[in-house]
Design a protein around this nucleic acid. Structure first.
Length: 520
RNA sequence: GUGAGCGUAGCUCAGCCGGUAGAGCAUCGGUCUGUGGAACCGAGGGUCGCGGGUUCAAAUCCCGUCGCUCACCCCA
């Protein structure tokens, strides 16, 4: 087989795709009932947007994003890269000459492009352009004249510096395929001044995200999320509770069994840092009892030690200080109110003090929903509050936010595990006989399709037995028979394939019969 | 990035100790030109992931490589 889907991506085929549509439609319906509108976002953004919101140091940003540079000047890029392939030698004057000729071309091209704006006029780029010019003038004076004054190592030094500066140029925008959508939603919110809209802005999105990581069960490089974000002036815990209620309503709608809700509060920028330090201090004391991964996290991100699944670390982690004890008054009250609000809504939850989120922007409320049948990836949804994010990205400081993202791939796995299956529901197969019946069959097919029935019409005459056999194997619910007898009687014969029940009906009655028996 | 397992027909797999590539399901055709599901008969479909080595002979043994899967890391 010549071509295959690249690592970590896959095709979703019928009939499985029908289940996807159903689930996504359920999300639309439920979210709509809570006043959310769909936002359609671009699939790529500036790298900087993700770096700022998700956190430069997170794995997602530092090593899992699909990044690329987008520039017009493909030729200039090729030319500057060709510098790296040239190795001028002092004893070979023409190689020296060629190198500097190419370098000169790149430099003048670059200067021109900076003026026209085809290459971004950033301070870095302008600095690099000056540096290149300087290096070129110096070295050309030394090496390009009839007598060569420098040594080979001098030359190598210049060549190396020129190459380095040329490659450091940013010829266009640094872009990345989105690894998640919250950053984009917030960017759009700010860009379109949505804080001037009345009340809370409620948005949902459905679509693919991209992370370059090793694929495994329920985890792909192109994966799908269904998410919602609520942005607005209020950070009342009732909003958090309603978001969670909506989420659970959705899971109920798609019949996800045994979903469990876990909640936690991770404090805000006042109280979390103090807790992190205290945690780090306690971890230092038991350092030698921890595994290598956890030891490393003591410095990089102590909160994540709480996530460890190593059995031997569990007793140690159990004794660590809990963030609930360290929350500031405002955060403690917010968390208490969330629990009251959940109780009011009769929502079952379990507090999990070890539930911390990986992304930098979360604060206060965090939550997660797990579902059975997912192997080691049992979280099917995660979310939380991110009150500082809008301000961080340049929007009004008064805008708070909360949201979640459902991992659609994992949700599907769990639903399929539970036996959910979608059939391609073919309503009607038209078994026609004799060329004179064909026009009637074509007309009937169009008529039925206008009424939203799924209709299969064979393109050429088939043996009747074959035709019915095909209807059966296609899973059609009805076969409509069009032959000489039917034409003569101006009626159709319709046969219910499940039990063989068969009747003769005029077109209007047939339509009524088929549409009324359609299962929702 | 690390570790383990697996690559033979569209799918699920057999093929042991090297000796002319198989089964079931699926597809297509026939028995069967106005009644499907069944049965029977037949057909198509494979450079045994790829490359090298050992051998008279390799799907089989050895080495390498690529791919897939699961787990770790991390995360939704």
């Amino acid at each position: 087989m010549k071509f295959q889907a690249i690592k970590g991506v896959r095709d979703i085929l019928p009939p499985e795709s029908a289940l996807w549509s159903r689930v996504e439609q359920s999300a639309r319906d439920v979210f709509h009932s809570y006043g959310y509108g769909e936002i359609r976002l671009p699939m790529f953004e500036q790298v900087e947007l993700f770096a700022r919101s998700i956190g430069q140091e997170t794995d997602v940003v530092s090593k899992e994003m699909y990044r690329f540079e987008d520039y017009e000047l493909v030729d200039l890029d090729a030319e500057r890269r060709s510098l790296a392939l040239r190795h001028p030698q002092i004893e070979n004057p023409s190689s020296v000459y060629t190198f500097f000729t190419v370098a000169e071309a790149v430099i003048s091209w670059l200067q021109q492009s900076l003026i026209t704006g085809q290459v971004p006029r950033t301070p870095e780029n302008e600095g690099l352009a000056r540096e290149l010019k300087g290096l070129y003038d110096e070295s050309a004076a030394k090496f390009q004249l009839p007598k060569y004054e420098g040594t080979q190592s001098d030359l190598d030094l210049y060549v190396d510096q020129i190459r380095r500066a040329a490659l450091a140029l940013r010829l266009g925008d640094s872009l990345a395929l989105r690894p998640e959508a919250t950053a984009s939603v917030v960017r759009a919110y700010i860009e379109h001044g949505m804080h001037t809209r009345p009340g809370n802005v409620k948005l949902y999105y459905i679509g693919p995200m991209f992370r370059r990581e090793r694929p495994q069960k329920g985890r792909y490089r192109q994966f799908y999320q269904i998410g919602a974000e609520l942005l607005g002036p209020s950070d009342h815990a009732a909003l958090d509770a309603e978001v969670i209620e909506m989420l659970l309503a959705f899971f109920a709608r798609v019949n996800l069994k045994d979903a469990k809700l876990y909640i936690n509060s991770i404090g805000d920028k006042n109280c979390r840092p103090a807790y992190v330090e205290r945690l780090r201090g306690e971890l230092q004391k038991v350092r030698d009892k921890l595994g290598a991964d956890s030891q490393r996290r003591i410095e990089t991100n102590p909160l994540r030690v709480l996530d460890s699944k190593l059995p031997e670390e569990q007793p140690i982690i159990d004794k660590l200080p809990r963030i609930a004890e360290c929350l500031c008054d405002a955060c403690r009250e917010h968390y208490a109110e969330l629990k009251r609000q959940l109780a009011l809504r009769k929502i079952d939850y379990e507090e999990n003090w070890r539930l911390v989120r990986g992304l930098d922007y979360y604060m206060r409320t965090t939550f997660e929903i797990t579902a059975p049948g997912l192997g080691s990836q049992n979280a099917v949804c995660g979310g939380g509050r991110y009150d500082g994010l809008v301000e961080l990205l340049g929007g009004p400081a008064t805008t708070k936010g909360i949201g979640f993202a459902i991992g659609t791939d994992r949700l599907m796995l769990s639903l399929q595990e539970a036996g959910a299956a979608a059939k391609c529901a073919l309503d009607v197969y038209i078994a026609w006989m004799g060329v004179q019946a064909y026009p009637a069959a074509v007309a009937l097919a169009r008529k039925l399709r206008e009424h939203n029935l799924s209709v299969e019409l064979p393109p050429q005459e088939m043996k009747f037995g074959k035709s019915l056999s095909l209807a059966d194997r296609l899973g059609a619910r009805f076969a409509v028979i069009v032959g000489e007898d039917e034409l003569a009687a101006r009626q159709f014969t319709v046969k219910r394939l499940a039990d063989g029940d068969q009747r003769r009906l005029a077109e209007a009655d047939l339509l009524e019969y088929l549409t009324s028996s359609r299962t929702a």
